[in-house]
C-alpha cells in the first residue's frame, strides 16, 4: 500500500507542475500582478460566513489493521465568525483575548483519532502470529482424540469500537511576517478517554502571481489516557488473535503542504499532501499496522 501511495503522490506532483502551462495561455508576455505591501486602502467588511467546497480525488491512509483507506472526494470548509463566538469546521469557540500580538480562544472540538475507527472490517482468521514472528494455526477447543481434534477454527479478529470524544481547551494563535503559529491544549470533557493533548503548529504561505503554497509542521503530545483509549487493546477486548496492549503517552508530529492555483476569484485548483507520524507507543499497538498517516488530494475548490 505504501508504494502505490507514494507513486500516486509523485504523479500528482508532476501533474501539478504541468498545470500552470495549461492555464498560462497567452499570459506569458504579461507580468503577474505584483502585490504592494501596506498601501493605504480601506478594506471591505468581511462576511460572517465562510463557505467553501473542494471536489476531486484523494485519500488518507488508515493506520489500523484490516482497515480501509479513507477516500477524500469532497472537502467542506464551513465557518461563521461573530463578535466573539465562532464556529469553524465543527470547532465551537469564544475569543477571550484578541490583540495585535495574539488571539486566545476557548474551544470545544471533536477528537480526530476516532475518524479511523469508522473504516474497519471484521475478519475471520485461521492463523495467529506468535511472539517470535511465526504463524501457528488456531486449534478449536476440543478434547484430545475427540471429534474435531486438530481442526483449525476461524477466529474473529476485529478492531475494537471507539467513541468520539468532546474536548475543551485553550488555543493561542500568533501571526506575523514570519508566518503563523498556534499552541493548543485540550482535555476530554465527555468522559470518553479522560486524557489530554498539547500541540504546537507553524505554517507559512507564499503567493506568487496566481500560485499559493503553504507548508506547515506540527508536533503534539497525547497523554497516556487518550492514547490508550483509542489505540490500546483493553482487557475486555483481548482475543486469541489480539493481544492486550497498553499505550503510553507520547509525541507525534505532522507536516503538510497546501498549494493552490487561482483560476478566478472564487475557483482554484487545489493540491495538498500531508504526513502524520504516530507516537512510538501507538505505533507498536497490535491494532496499528502502519506508524504513519499519509494523505493527499487534488481537485477544484470553490469559495463562496
Amino acid at each position: 500500500m505504501k508504494i502505490p501511495t507514494l507513486r500516486t503522490l509523485a504523479a500528482l506532483t508532476a501533474l501539478w507542475g504541468a498545470m500552470p502551462l495549461a492555464f498560462a495561455q497567452a499570459e506569458t508576455t504579461v507580468e503577474p500582478a505584483t502585490p504592494v505591501p501596506n498601501a493605504p486602502h480601506s478594506l471591505p467588511a468581511e462576511k460572517s460566513w465562510r463557505f467553501g467546497i473542494g471536489l476531486g480525488y484523494g485519500q488518507r491512509t488508515n493506520p489500523l489493521i484490516q482497515s480501509e483507506d479513507i477516500p477524500v472526494v469532497v472537502d467542506l470548509d464551513i465557518a461563521w465568525f461573530g463578535e466573539r463566538w465562532f464556529f469553524d469546521n465543527f470547532d465551537l469557540g469564544f475569543a477571550l483575548v484578541d490583540n495585535a500580538r495574539f488571539t486566545t480562544n476557548v474551544v470545544a472540538r471533536l477528537n480526530s483519532d476516532r475518524a479511523f475507527f469508522g473504516k474497519t472490517n471484521t475478519r475471520y482468521v485461521n492463523f495467529t502470529m506468535t511472539s517470535g514472528g511465526g504463524q501457528v494455526p488456531i486449534v478449536g477447543p476440543t478434547t484430545p482424540g475427540g471429534p474435531g481434534a486438530g481442526v483449525v477454527v476461524p477466529v474473529e479478529l476485529k478492531v475494537p469500537d471507539r467513541d468520539y470524544a468532546v474536548e475543551l481547551g485553550l488555543e493561542m494563535l500568533f501571526d506575523g511576517e514570519w508566518g503563523e503559529a498556534s499552541l493548543r491544549a485540550f482535555h476530554d470533557v465527555s468522559g470518553t478517554h479522560e486524557g489530554f493533548e498539547i500541540s504546537a503548529d507553524y505554517g507559512y504561505r507564499w503567493i506568487h502571481g496566481r500560485f499559493s503554497i503553504a507548508p506547515s509542521v506540527g508536533v503534539s503530545y497525547k497523554s497516556a489516557a487518550l492514547s490508550d483509549y483509542y489505540w490500546g487493546v483493553h482487557a475486555d477486548e483481548v482475543l486469541p488473535t489480539l493481544a492486550g496492549y497498553q499505550v503510553d503517552g507520547g509525541f507525534g508530529w505532522e507536516a503538510g503542504l497546501r498549494t493552490s492555483y487561482y483560476l478566478t476569484k472564487n475557483v482554484r485548483l487545489a493540491v495538498s499532501a500531508n504526513y502524520e507520524k504516530l507516537s512510538d507507543s501507538i505505533s507498536l499497538s497490535p491494532i496499528v499496522a502502519e506508524p504513519q498517516v499519509i494523505g493527499y488530494f487534488a481537485g477544484v475548490a470553490w469559495q463562496f
Binding site: 465568525f81 469546521n89 498556534s182 504561505r205 498517516v293 494523505g295
Partner: peptide
C-alpha cells in the same frame, strides 16, 4: 484576498488533514 482580513480567522489554521 487570500486569507482573511479578520485576524482571528486568519490566525486559525485548519487541521493538517484538511485539504483546503
Amino acid at each position: 484576498r487570500v486569507g482573511s482580513t479578520d485576524r482571528r480567522r486568519e490566525r486559525r489554521s485548519r487541521h493538517v488533514w484538511d485539504v483546503l
